[in-house]
Computed example of a mutant assay.
Amino acid sequence: MELIRGLHNFAPRHRGSVVSIGNFDGLHRGHQALIARLRTLAVQHRVPVTVVCFEPMPREFFQGAAAPPRIADLRGKLRDLALFGVERVVVLPFGARLAAMSAQAFVQQVLVDGLGARAVIVGDDFRYGSKRVGDLALLKAIGAVEGFSAEGLGTVELEGERCSSTVLRAALAQPDLDKVERLLDRRYRIVGRVRHGLKLGRQLGMPTANVHLRRPPALAHGVYAVRLAWPGAPEGLPGVASLGVRPTLGLTACLLETHVFDLKPDLYGQEVVVEFHKFLRPQLKFDDLDTLAAQMQADGLAARAHFSQDLIPS
């Protein structure tokens, strides 16, 4: 998959695309339906499947710390888009300049001049341009002049409820991992690169692979039974993970710490995928490290029990 960062990196070879635009946070079933339609159009027009998204997301620019937490960071989003067959992703830096761009200018510079769009498909509630004045009707009107078709994809429902990032975010906050899996059609996962940490887990008998999270994700802080995958073990191995700010240590940065059972792989610098299988308990503050260590061992046993149950024939 090709990544294009910013309008200034458009090249003549990028002209000729079928395009969708949006945040694609979480890549739930609604997003998947949109991309499936995009792939059909790509075959018809014999051009690449292209997605345009924004970094930061517009609500993060306008609302700052009050913006809803992300379901996936950019690294995870790009990985999922590639898995669903997207061939090009345009990441536009969202700042004051882009926020002030008119809807007509946005379509002209991105879809017409930059990508030479043959077809554009968006969610039926998609808005764009300064003050969000651009809508599907305007997109169709410009397309009729510039030579591209435009269509909106209707709402995708699951169990009588709209499948959306808002609904998915609420399920992650509970956390209701069964509902999350239904909305995503897969288990929730976090992608990140393993960095050095305090090595406290090693001192307490449970070494961990640590992923520092610049933005706290939408998933509730707590301890989970997980599978950890990396290039050396792409199928993933079972383990236990703690997501949160480590209140016992008085820290505030969000960290994902994963212990893989019966293995001590050297994962520093490697990209890993943590897949969440079961919520075990919320994040707690302990009086001392001995109590924390005892709870960590108990968490490990609970996670092992979960995966052992998965192996029992029904």
Rank of each mutant, 00 (worst) to 15 (best):
I4C: 05
R5D: 08
G6S: 00
L7M: 06
L7Q: 07
N9G: 00
R15I: 00
V18R: 04
V19N: 05
R37D: 11
R37G: 13
L38R: 00
R39H: 09
T40V: 09
L41N: 02
L41D: 03
L41F: 10
V43G: 06
T50R: 02
P58W: 13
R59Y: 08
Q63E: 15
G64R: 09
K77P: 04
R79H: 12
G95V: 01
M101S: 09
Q104Y: 13
V110E: 13
L115F: 10
G116N: 04
V122E: 05
D124W: 13
Y128N: 12
Y128P: 15
G129E: 06
G129L: 08
R132T: 05
G134I: 04
D135F: 04
L138N: 10
L139D: 14
E146A: 02
E146F: 03
G154V: 14
E159C: 12
R162E: 14
C163N: 12
P175I: 10
L177T: 07
V180R: 10
E181Y: 12
R182G: 11
R182H: 14
R186S: 14
V191A: 00
H196L: 00
H196S: 06
G197Q: 06
G201T: 02
R202M: 04
G205W: 03
T208V: 01
R214Q: 13
P216E: 05
G222Q: 09
V223S: 03
R227M: 00
R227W: 00
A229V: 07
P234R: 15
G236V: 02
L237C: 05
S242M: 08
R246Y: 12
T248D: 13
A253M: 12
L255E: 05
T258Q: 02
K264L: 07
V272T: 09
V273S: 07
K278N: 10
R281L: 09
L289C: 04
Q295G: 02
A303S: 03
P313G: 05
